[in-house]
Amino acid sequence: SHTLPALGPAERGKIFKELRSLSKMLLENVKEEKGVPMSQSYTLPCLIPDAQPPNHINISAIRTYLQTIRQLRDNVTLGEIIEHLDKLRFQDASKTNISVPAGTLENKRFILTILTQFSECMELASKPSNSEAQRAG
């Protein structure tokens, strides 16, 4: 069984907004490097299938992907992001295995592709869900 974190919707929303801006900043930084194309071979599992908001974001898998990136290219912003993710994480979430591609260019493509999808994911996550929207309406 999942033990829900002690955070309320408001706090979670604040964290997701922070993650959205941090992910944008990180992505801009990575995008500065020319000559690295995106890849169709890598997908960040943003949503937990069949899960309902507010627990539909696959925080554990996202954290694993970002930790993998951190091992390839450590970075302060990435560290901050992982700290925020840790606040949101369910304790006993499922384990995600990631195989890191070989070769530096492929590593760079992996990083660019995953961080692009992460930024889109945080954009999605920071949008108020229907129930929250109704309550706020």
């Binding site: 490097e33 020319k34 000559g35 690295v36 194309p37 530096t104 260019l105 760079k108």
Partner: peptide, 10 residues
């Protein structure tokens, strides 16, 4: 750059 020069073929 320190991260190297990127060469890519497709």
């Amino acid at each position: 750059r320190k991260g190297g020069t990127n060469i890519y073929c497709e």
